[in-house]
Design a protein around this nucleic acid. Structure first.
Lengths: 217, 217, 217, 217
DNA sequence: AATGAATGAGGATTCATTCAT
DNA sequence: AATGAATGAATCCTCATTCAT
C-alpha cells in the first residue's frame, strides 16, 4: 500500500498536478497580485517544474484566470445562503451579510486578487481581469435579484443603485479588514451594512428628501 | 546675469525633472501597480534616462512612496471641505461626500494606486505601502473627528465603527466606479452614502448600546 | 472482415500518421530552416501530439533527414527527363533545363530546405544536412554523366567544372526566383542557362586562352 | 600606459562594445543562421553580458540586421572594382568577376547569412531579411548599370535578365564553394561565369529578339 | 500505434541598480 | 544635475526529449 503510493507519486497524474498548481497560484497571486506572481515562485510552491505548469496552462494569464474561476466557484459554494421560504426580510438580509462576511474571512484570496486585478488599468486587459469581472457580474445579478425580490416596489434604477451600493459596501469592508486586521470586526460591520441597506432602500423609495429620523426608532 | 540665469535654469531643471518623473510615475503606477511599474517604463514616459531617476530617488520604492505622498497632498488640496461654522449636519455631511466624490473623479490615481498597494501582501512591506497607510490614517482621523463632532453622544467605539464604515463605503464606491465607468453615478451614490451614514449612526446610538469592548480585540 | 478492416485501418493509420508528420515538417522546415523547425510546431500542424512524432522518428534530426529524402524522391519523380535516344544535344539539354525549372516551381521546398541546411555551418553536422548532400551528390553525378555523354571530347576536369557550373546556375536561379517572385521568369532563365552551357563547353574545350570574341556574333 | 589600458578596459566604451558585439554576431550568425544565433552565444563570444547587448540593440532582429548592413558595407569596400576608363569589355568583366570571387572567399559570412535569411519564408519577415534584400537590390542595380553600359544595344528586358543571371551565377557558385570546399576552384568558375555572360549577351541580342513584355507578368 | 504528462536546459528579453564621467 | 554604459538576476516561455501507460 505504501509502496503503491511511492509508485503513484512517480506516475503522471494530470488532475492532481493541475490542482496543486492552482493551489500554489492562489496563495501567491492572492498575496502579490498579477505582476508579483512569478511562474518560478508558483513552481517552487507546488513542486512541479515551470515547464509543467505550461503543460497545464497556456500562459500566466490563463493560469491566473483559472485561479479566479476556481476561487469564485469555491467561494460561492462556501456561501450557504438561507432559503427563501422563511424569515423576515431584515433577518434574511442580515443572515446573508453574515454569510458573506464569513466567507470573506475564510477565503479572502479570491476577492483580494480580484480587486487587485480590477484596479489595474493596463492596456492589454489580461483575461484574468476579464474573468473576475465576469464572475463579479454574476454576483451582482444575484444581489439585484434578491433586492428586487425583497423590495418589489422599488423602481429598477433604484434597485440597481442599491445593488451597487451593497456590493461596494462589501468590497470596502473587505478592504478595511485587510488593512485593519484584528482591530476590525468584519461581522459587526457587515451587520451594520445589512441594516443600513434598508435605510438606503427607504431613502430611495421615499423619493428625494427622506424624512430625517424616519429610520431611527 | 546670463550666468545667473544659466544657474537658475539648471537648478530649476532639477526640480522640473523631478516633477516630470513623478508625473510619469503616477501614470504608470496608477495603471499597473507596484510590480508593474518599471523604471524603464517611467524613463520612457518622462524622457529622462533611468539613471537620472536614480539621481532624484534612492530606489523604486522611494519613488513610488514619493508619488503617493504627492498624490495625497494634491488630493487633499482638491478637497475644499466646507467650514464647520454653518449648515446642518445632514447638509454638511452631504456636502463633504460630494466633495470626496468629485475629488475621486478628478484624481483617481491616488486612491487606485493606494488600494493596489493595500491589497498586496508581500513579505517585505514596501515603504510605498506604508506611506499610503499613513496618509490613510490621517484621513481616518479627520473623519473620526468630524463624526465625533456631529454626534457627540456616540461612544468612541461606535464612532470608530462609523468612521470605518464611512471610509469603506468610499473605497467600495470608488471601485464600483472604476469597474462600472460611466454607468455608475458616483455623485448620487455618495449622496446615498451620506444619508446612510446617518441611518447607521441612529442604529448605533439608539439600538441596544453595543457592549463596550466588542470591537477591540 | 470487420476485424480485418479494423486491423488494416490501424496499420494504415500508422503510415498515414507518418505521412501527416512529414507533410507538416516540409511545410515548417521549408519556411524556417533546421533550427526554426520545432517539434511543437510540427505537432500543432499535423494534429498529432509531440510524443507521437517521437514514435515515428528517433529525433528531430532524423525527422528532417526523412523529409529531405522524401522530398528528393518526389522531386526526382516529378522530373520526367527525356530519353537519351532522341533529339539533338541542344534540344535535349534545353528540355532538361525546362524540366528542372518546372519541378523547382512545383516543389520548391526540397531545394529551399536543402540549401538552408547547406549554408548552415554548425559544429555537429546534422544528418539532415548530410542527407541533402548525399542526394545532391547523386544529382551531380547524373549531370556529370549527361555532360560527359554530350561532350565526349571534354577532359574530366572540364566536365566536372561544367557540371558544377550547371548546378550552381540552377541553385542561383532558384534563389533568384525565391527573391524575385513573379517578376522572375524562371523558365526563360533556365533556357538561357541551357544555351549558355554550350558556350561554356566551347570555352573549356577550346582550351586555355579562349580566343576572345569567339562567342560574340 | 599599461595601467591606463587596464582602466580603459573598465571604462564604458560604447563604440568599441558595439563593434565587439557585431563582430561576435557575424561569426555566429554566419555559421548558424538566424534561429541558430542565440544571444547567449554572442554574449559569450564578445565577453559582454547579454543585457549589454540589449543596450546597444533593441532585439535580436535588429542586431542581425545591423550585422547584415555592416557586412555589406565592408564587403562592398573590399570590392575594388576596376575603373571604367581602361580595358576591353571582356577583360573588364573578367576582372570584376575575379574581384567578386575574391571578396566572397575572404568574407563569406555576408553572403552566407544573407542567403540563409533569403531562403527563410517565415510569416513575420525579420527586418534582418529585409535589410539583406535591400542591400542586394543595391548590388543588382549596380550590375544592371554595368551591363547596360557595356552592351548599350541590349533592350532593357534583356539587360535585366542578364543581370539576374549574373547574380544568380554568383550566388550559385558561392554555394558550390561552400559545399565543395577546396575541391572547388571558385576563381576559375567565376572566370567561366564572366565568359558565359558574354555568350548569354550574344544569345540575347542576336537570337530572335525576345517578344517585348515576355518577362513582365 | 499512440499519447498525456513531465522535465531540465536554454530561449529572448527586462529588471532594478550602479558607476564613471 | 545628469547620463551612457554596463551588469547579474530574474522574467516568461519554448526547447527537444522521455516515460509510463
Amino acid at each position: 500500500m505504501t509502496d503503491d503510493r511511492g509508485a503513484r507519486r512517480r506516475r503522471a497524474n494530470g488532475e492532481e498536478s493541475r490542482r496543486k498548481i492552482l493551489d500554489a497560484t492562489v496563495e501567491v497571486a492572492g498575496e502579490r497580485g498579477y505582476e508579483g506572481t512569478s511562474i518560478a515562485l508558483v513552481s517552487k510552491k507546488c513542486g512541479l517544474p515551470a515547464s509543467s505548469i505550461y503543460w497545464h496552462f497556456k500562459d500566466k494569464d490563463e493560469l491566473i484566470a483559472a485561479v479566479i474561476e476556481r476561487s469564485f466557484d469555491s467561494w460561492l459554494s462556501a456561501l450557504t445562503l438561507p432559503g427563501e421560504e422563511h424569515g423576515q426580510p431584515v433577518e434574511r438580509v442580515t443572515e446573508m451579510s453574515r454569510q458573506v462576511a464569513k466567507s470573506l474571512l475564510e477565503t479572502p484570496e479570491f476577492l483580494r486578487l480580484g480587486l487587485m486585478l480590477t484596479l489595474e488599468r493596463r492596456p492589454e486587459e489580461p483575461s484574468a481581469r476579464t474573468m473576475f469581472l465576469q464572475v463579479r457580474h454574476i454576483a451582482a445579478q444575484r444581489i439585484t435579484a434578491v433586492i428586487g425580490d425583497f423590495l418589489p416596489d422599488l423602481d429598477d434604477d433604484s434597485v440597481r443603485l442599491l445593488a451597487t451600493y451593497a456590493m461596494a459596501g462589501a468590497d470596502g469592508l473587505f478592504i478595511a479588514k485587510e488593512i485593519g486586521g484584528d482591530s476590525v470586526d468584519l461581522l459587526r460591520l457587515f451587520e451594520l451594512h445589512a441594516h443600513v441597506l434598508f435605510a438606503a432602500a427607504a431613502h430611495l423609495s421615499a423619493g428625494a428628501p427622506p424624512p430625517p429620523g424616519l429610520l431611527s426608532p
